[in-house]
């Protein structure tokens, strides 16, 4: 170690001797004992540092600072809960990204699919799991007769008077506070269930006038709409049976 290196290290040696036990300074301190020039420099350095430290210790703290801190501390509410893992900035950022992706996906997903899922899922489950199907009264009978005609093709407008159907005893069910009517009919020895809803009750639904046919849970489901109503026809016989009616 030369004197330049020794000086560099000894600049960090506190004048109050608090670093006497620090091994980092041992070699440099030893060198001050062997080199009079370095020894003289170190003595000057320590005296200078000591004088500066003494001056700093004379800095007066403004009156009232202590009282202000204590008073402020008393009204400062502590965070009594440990920082939860989910409040970590990185995880928060990740959660925010996922939320954005989720919201964007939800916003951009075709509304017709979402809305029709609501109605078609209900119609499918009602067909498969509910034994209480219906279609009674004059109006229901007329619609049944129309649907049972071998020449009737599903799609477009059906001869439905919604209010009259409801009054005539057609089965009405509640789907999320929206009324859905159901009429059952038979074609080619197979039962079909026709669900009719007001289009205004499902404003997000953008189903076209041409029936969309899908198979779910082994059942056939066809859905379409006209200007004022939505239609879903379901049969447990599968989509091939339903396809013959389109």
């Amino acid at each position: 170690m030369n004197n330049v290196e020794a000086k560099f290290i000894l600049q960090g040696y506190r004048p109050n001797g608090a670093d006497a036990g620090d091994a980092t300074f041992c070699a440099a301190l030893d060198q001050t004992k062997q080199d009079p020039t370095l020894h003289e420099w170190f003595a000057r350095e320590q005296a200078f540092d000591s004088a500066i430290s003494a001056k700093l210790a004379h800095i007066q703290v403004p009156a009232g600072l202590r009282e202000a801190i204590l008073a402020g501390g008393r009204v400062t509410a502590p965070d009594t809960t440990r920082r939860s893992w989910w409040r970590h900035p990185a995880l928060l950022a990740m959660a925010a990204c996922l939320a954005v992706v989720f919201i964007t996906t939800f916003a951009l997903w075709p509304k017709a699919v979402v809305a029709s899922e609501d109605l078609t899922t209900f119609a499918l489950d009602d067909t498969l799991y509910n034994k209480n199907h219906g279609g009674h009264g004059a109006e229901a009978g007329a619609l049944q007769a129309f649907l049972m005609q071998p020449t009737t093709r599903l799609g477009g407008s059906l001869p439905v008077d919604f209010a009259a159907l409801r009054k005539a005893g057609c089965r009405a069910v509640n789907l999320n506070d929206r009324e859905v009517l159901e009429v059952c009919f038979k074609r080619n020895g197979t039962w079909f269930h026709c669900y009719i809803a007001q289009r205004a009750d499902f404003p997000a639904l953008a189903a076209g006038t041409t029936p969309a046919l899908v198979e779910r849970k082994g059942a056939g489901v066809a859905s379409w709409s006209d200007a004022s109503r939505l239609y879903v026809v379901v049969t447990a016989a599968g989509d091939s049976a339903l396809e013959k009616l389109l």
Binding site: I69, T76, D79
Partner: peptide, 10 residues
């Protein structure tokens, strides 16, 4: 200085 102690208090 006050700000530092208030952060400690919190």
């Amino acid at each position: 200085t006050q700000q530092t102690f208030f952060i400690w208090a919190k």
